[in-house]
Write a protein that binds this DNA or RNA. Structure first.
Length: 286
DNA sequence: CCGTTAACCTGAGAGC
DNA sequence: TGCTCTCAGGTTAACG
């Protein structure tokens, strides 16, 4: 559900709240997330300090006592909330479905001195995991493709990767081992702005089309971060502001609406690619 | 090896 | 109101 920009906003929110703070206690209400949470999870975090917070792909990573790492993936429906001690009202610092906090899906609660941070995830596709060392962390992410906003995601890299692949470009952008962080919304947005048909086979892409994909990927994702992410339903950051990038959608969720390209009178169509909704303009995207 | 499909879950919203 | 059906921002084991 959250893609790179939303996870980046969650990370920024968490960074303001828990950096250099000590976890006093952890409560696990449901161990059955995507991967079962081991019994020693609570103990290994108790009275430890969060020394750094960063993001890789769609993961939020907490450095613990300068040596261990807690990795967190929000899956499709994972959200982070916080509340002050004694205050029953929780603040959504990421996003969630519906108006009220669905408390029965508060699977993890991290207690700090003056507040608590809650991990809520109705569908339980998300997970947490502890990496005991930096080596273990690096090994865990070794198959992941480059960050789309980094220098390694460039024309030469894609050209070489696309050379011997028969896959279509939409599926390729969602392949986390090719490039890590793009999800279903931004894949449609990137291809619309690149004017490329999502079904086009990557081996048939020209050099200038590959250049376009690179530049539009960076443009769309960085713009989305600047707008605070996309708020489908009720995404909010730590300051209580909603993300605004959904207002910039040109393709995603716009089925039957007029294409926004100047002079184009076609309507956006919705098709299924690998069981994922894909939106595009047949007239503009070749 | 590669690419595709089904499966993992719950809840919201549409249609009847 | 309530039932059934479809859909949802992700990943990956199993299959051909």
């Amino acid at each position: 559900m959250p893609e790179l920009p939303e996870v980046e906003i969650v990370k920024q929110s968490l960074n303001k709240i828990v950096k250099f703070k000590t976890i006093s206690k952890v409560i696990v209400n449901n161990r059955n997330l995507r991967f079962k949470i081991p019994k020693n999870f609570e103990k290994s975090l108790k009275k430890k300090k969060i020394t750094k917070i960063f993001r890789k792909s769609k993961y939020v990573i907490f450095q613990i006592n300068f040596e261990q790492y807690l990795i967190m993936h929000l899956g499709m429906s994972g959200t982070i909330h916080m509340s002050d001690k004694g205050n029953k009202k929780n603040t959504n610092i990421s996003f969630y479905h519906g108006r009220d906090l669905p408390e029965k899906h508060n699977h993890l609660i991290f207690f700090f001195d003056k507040f608590k941070v809650i991990y809520n995830d109705p569908r339980r596709f998300g997970f947490v995991k502890i990496m005991k060392s930096k080596d273990e962390l690096i090994k865990y992410f070794s198959k992941l493709g480059p960050e789309p906003l980094g220098n390694k995601f460039n024309t030469n890299y894609l050209k070489q990767k696309f050379n011997k692949s028969i896959k279509n470009i939409k599926n390729s952008l969602l392949d986390q081992n090719l490039v890590s962080g793009i999800g279903n919304i931004y894949a449609s947005e990137i291809l619309f702005r690149s004017k490329i048909n999502p079904l086009k086979k990557v081996e048939n892409l020209t050099l200038s089309e590959i250049r376009k994909i690179i530049s539009k990927t960076k443009f769309v994702l960085s713009h989305a971060i600047n707008k605070g992410g996309s708020s489908i339903r009720d995404f909010k950051n730590v300051s209580g502001f909603k993300g605004n990038y959904q207002k910039e959608f040109m393709a995603y969720s716009r089925e039957n609406y007029l294409c926004l390209n100047r002079g184009c009178e076609s309507k956006i169509i919705k098709i299924n690619i690998n069981n994922r909704a894909t939106y595009y303009c047949k007239n503009c995207q070749k």
